[in-house]
Simulated scan of single mutants.
Amino acid sequence: MSERRPTLRERRRSETRRLVQAQAVRLFTDRGYDAVTVADVAQAAGVSAMTVYRHFPTKEDLVLIDQPARLITERVAASSATQPLVRRVGGALVDAATAMTEPGGDEAAPGKQFLLDCLRLMVSTPALRARHLDSQYALQEAIVDALGDDQTDSEAAFRARAATSACLAAMHTALTRWTEDNGRTPLPDLITRALTASFGDEAVIDHTADAPGKRS
């Protein structure tokens, strides 16, 4: 079955959302988050304030990027349940970072510089740090659901949440280093290093393991 193609209305909605967010992040970066209003963003994007709110219910939402969560949960759900939890989650984090920042990754990715700008804003703005924590909790729960463990088993649920939160903490450390380094070191490499420092080789993914001709 072929994948459903987005309708013209859906494409236009996505284009408007990307335009609004791009203008918002540009203004926040140039003037400072607190100095920019939603009306300023609407004017820069050439839309009404109501349109901005329709796509982004709060001002903080203008700096959040939903795509990484989708990429991560898709990869977690597709991973083998026979692998250790930290390898399933860690591998998904590395793969999503590759798709978001490396050439030839996800075509809809907003781009490396845009990601760096968003991360800098989140680090430097108290209101955005709080909103980021909320989004991280939502991501943790989405990953736990994608792992597919029996949530009625309290011990299994505990292990899944513990492994996921630890992996996300390692990723946060990598993201902080990435912004400090101005993106010079590839983000997937930093996440891999952070995971290895936290869990050892158990969290390291050998992407060549399933390649043709690879012998175990």
Results as ranks from 00 to 15, higher is better:
A24H: 10
R161G: 09
P126N: 07
D34K: 10
T164K: 06
G91H: 01
Y53Q: 05
Q67T: 14
I72L: 13
H172Q: 15
F158Y: 15
G90V: 02
A142F: 00
R31M: 06
D153K: 14
G148E: 07
Y33R: 10
A127E: 13
A39S: 10
A157K: 11
A96M: 07
R26M: 01
P212K: 13
L64H: 15
H132W: 13
E3D: 09
G148F: 07
V204A: 05
G91D: 03
A169S: 11
I72P: 12
G46Q: 03
T196W: 06
E74P: 10
S154E: 14
E155R: 12
V144M: 08
R88Y: 02
P188N: 08
S124E: 15
C167L: 01
T58N: 01
P110H: 12
P6Y: 03
D189S: 15
D61G: 04
Q23E: 15
T185W: 08
K214T: 11
T125M: 10
A69F: 05
P186N: 09
S2H: 14
D150Y: 05
A69Y: 00
A35W: 00
G90L: 08
R88W: 00
D106T: 01
L175C: 09
A203F: 00
I65T: 12
G148T: 01
A211I: 02
A169I: 07
D149T: 13
A92K: 13
D153W: 02
E3N: 09
R177Y: 03
I143S: 00
E107G: 05
D30K: 14
A35E: 11
V76Y: 03
M100C: 06
V36D: 00
